[in-house]
Amino acid sequence: MMWEELKAGQTIKYADVYVTKQGVFNYDHQKLSDVVYVDERLQEVKDGKGFIVLAFAINGNLQCEIFTTEEFEEKKIKLVSQFGFLIQQAHKSILNEYLIEQYQTLTSRKTYTHIGFLPTSSMIRKEQIVFGLSRPIAAEKQAFKWDQQNCDFNVAVEGSVREWQRMVKKQVIPSPNLTLALGLGLSSIIIGYLKRTGESVDTAIFHLVGRSTTGKTTAGALAVSVWGRPTKGEKGLFQSWNATANAMMKRLGKNNGVALLLDETSMSEIKDFTNVIYRLAEGGDKERSTKTGDLAEKSEWATTLITTGESSVLENTNKNGGLYVRMQEFADIQWTDSAAQADTIKSVIANNYGGAGIRFARKLSKNW
């Protein structure tokens, strides 16, 4: 990395400027700014949209921010002023030219904001199929990068996978019910893979029904801890039903193989779940028009959804036979043996998550 080279005392030269750890200078040895450079040139896998990563030093500390190439084309060096990196007006033109020169020397790297199986070309060998978590997983090495900043879900690896495994061996494997919950979480990669390879398969929906003391939410959080953050939050895999159906579908549209938990159906304002279950299972949102009258990009997904509630969802439908195929309910199961066991599981997965999914996907990717 350029920052490491600069800190090691190297001088990096360009047509009109050179860069040291002290900053950017012209060849009259006049300092133009503190260190600033293009760290990466990225391209979204899905739509080919371009991004640029600008790195800049403030008080000796390096900071990186991602911008679209449209933003960079319009503002260039001005983009970093919002972060307190200020440049004299007289130096902006030469710095802009330097950043463009540097950008053009870089090879574009593929980036992704989807999770699960990435929407790359369908005309590829199975060995080239990529499963996107915090890192790309495939049978062959892929030069892709997760765009964490713009991704809707937190699939980062946190803590120790060994700590997570120790908890699973002690608390989960001895319990058939918790082992089932873990299996539901792992199943999402199979659903995503079948859809990715052209099979007609529905998203799997499992509803855990029971009182608040049965441990159903703990079981659901355990299931999604395989893949990423299992706690509530803006980007966690633990979501609430307290959202409109359309908002839920929009978020799902970037998920092909990573299990999600939707907690407490009682939080939903939906009175009849018939249409919602069909839409969730079919893995595709309604076609919509843009403001210009063109068809908007249709959201598509294929994964496992685990929902929880104190009452049956299927009872709040028209009870068509097809609904009972698309959603399976597990009612009145005691998922955890005690409050102490539930607290232990929640404590471990809150601080150790995501690592198991990386290992599981790597194992499968050796022979998709």
Rank of each mutant, 00 (worst) to 15 (best):
I58F: 05
I58D: 03
I58K: 10
N59E: 15
N59D: 15
N59T: 08
G60M: 05
G60P: 06
N61I: 08
N61K: 13
L62N: 04
Q63C: 01
Q63A: 03
C64Y: 03
C64I: 00
C64E: 15
E65T: 02
I66K: 10
F67T: 02
T68K: 05
T68G: 05
T68A: 01
T69S: 06
E71L: 02
F72K: 04
E73D: 11
E74W: 00
K75D: 08
K75G: 00
K75S: 06
K75P: 00
I77M: 08
K78H: 05
Q82H: 05
Q82E: 09
Q82N: 04
F83N: 04
F83G: 00
F83Y: 14
F85N: 06
F85T: 02
L86H: 06
I87H: 04
I87M: 02
Q88H: 03
Q88C: 01
Q89A: 09
H91L: 00
H91S: 12
K92V: 03
K92C: 03
S93Q: 12
S93V: 06
S93N: 12
I94P: 01
I94S: 07
I94K: 11
L95D: 06
L95M: 09
E97Y: 02
Y98K: 09
L99P: 01
I100Q: 10
Y103P: 02
T105E: 14
L106V: 06
L106Y: 09
L106C: 08
L106N: 07
L106G: 03
T107D: 14
T107E: 15
S108Y: 08
K110H: 10
T111V: 11
T111M: 13
T113C: 05
T113E: 10
T113Y: 03
T113M: 11
H114D: 15
G116C: 10
F117R: 09
L118S: 09
L118Y: 10
L118A: 11
L118C: 08
L118R: 12
P119V: 08
P119G: 11
T120P: 00
T120H: 07
S121N: 15
S122E: 10
M123T: 07
M123K: 12
M123V: 04
M123C: 07
R125A: 12
K126G: 15
K126S: 08
K126W: 13
K126M: 12
K126C: 05
K126A: 08
Q128S: 13
Q128V: 00
Q128C: 11
I129L: 15
I129Q: 13
V130C: 15
F131A: 09
G132L: 09
L133H: 14
S134Q: 11
R135E: 15
R135V: 10
P136L: 11
I137F: 08
I137D: 07
A139V: 01
A139P: 02
E140A: 09
K141V: 07
K141R: 13
K141A: 12
Q142H: 10
Q142A: 14
Q142N: 15
A143M: 07
F144E: 05
F144M: 13
K145I: 11
W146C: 04
D147V: 01
Q149L: 06
Q149A: 12
N150G: 00
C151H: 05
F153E: 09
F153A: 06
N154D: 15
N154V: 02
V155H: 10
V155M: 07
A156T: 14
A156P: 00
E158N: 13
E158P: 00
